[in-house]
């Protein structure tokens, strides 16, 4: 039914949040190869394969973000090349909210401290764990998660973006939707939206740690990596 009066004012942000909730991709499974006898190789191969499939999903998801397809193809590429790891890491942190000392890369691929350390992923897991703690303390919910993920997409600082104004417009639209969402749901906490946005520096820092980790794996070699994953890693270097 159509909202009226004061309810109508609440419409626009709710439309965006509902849209983002529907656009949220199905969860992926990591499916570690039980026949791989080398635990480290199994962990790293599983992680890189999962990240490659996440990438495909993230690219498909970005097309559903309001206004993203109105950017030029070149700018869509520049934006995705600069923020895909932030989007990926935010998803992992959100999945890990319920687990204090574990990182949930996928439901069937959960790494504790020891498993991570053995595979050389100790620093990455610690960084994602720190980010997850921040969101746990904030009790980040699903609506806020999808809003924040969309904002992270449009928060690109890529120097290759040609029409920065168009990207700024998308960012403003989503920022406004977050402000409206929080002012409706938590009028008693006017700092809520700001608190969420203040997690973006840690998100970028964590994505930087992920980049260093993946680049290290690539440099050392021995772990199969798909072409798209390599292409996107290269784009960030």
């Amino acid at each position: 039914s159509m909202p009226s009066g004061k309810e109508a004012d609440k419409g626009s942000s709710n439309v965006i949040v509902s849209h983002l909730l529907v656009a949220e991709p199905e969860k992926l499974f990591a499916m570690p190869d039980p026949l791989q006898p080398d635990a480290t190789l199994r962990t790293l191969t599983t992680l890189c394969d999962l990240a490659d499939r996440e990438l495909v999903v993230i690219i498909g998801w970005a097309k559903h973000i309001p206004g993203f397809l109105s950017l030029s193809l070149a700018d869509q590429m520049s934006v995705l090349q600069s923020v895909w790891l932030e989007v990926l890491v935010l998803g992992v942190a959100f999945r890990s909210l319920g687990c204090e000392d574990e990182v949930v890369f996928a439901e069937d691929f959960v790494l504790d401290e020891e498993l991570s350390r053995v595979a050389g992923l100790g620093e990455l897991s610690a960084a994602v764990g720190q980010l997850a703690r921040r969101y746990r303390a904030l009790q980040l919910d699903r609506e806020e998660f999808v809003m924040l993920k969309a904002i992270a997409l449009t928060n690109s600082d890529s120097v290759y973006i040609e029409d920065t104004e168009a990207v700024q417009k998308l960012r403003d639209l989503l920022h406004q939707a977050l402000l409206e969402l929080e002012s409706q749901r938590r009028p008693e906490d006017p700092r809520r939206a700001g608190r969420l946005l203040l997690t973006l520096p840690l998100l970028r820092q964590t994505a930087g740690r992920a980049l260093a980790t993946f680049y290290g794996i690539k440099t050392r070699g021995g772990v199969p990596m798909h072409k798209l994953f390599l292409e996107m890693l290269e784009a960030m270097m």
Partner: peptide, 20 residues
Amino acid sequence: KEKHKILHRLLQNSTSPVDL
């Protein structure tokens, strides 16, 4: 751009998203 062939292709393919 040659270097980013796969991303380019994925973005170009079905440029219009599936109806939600």
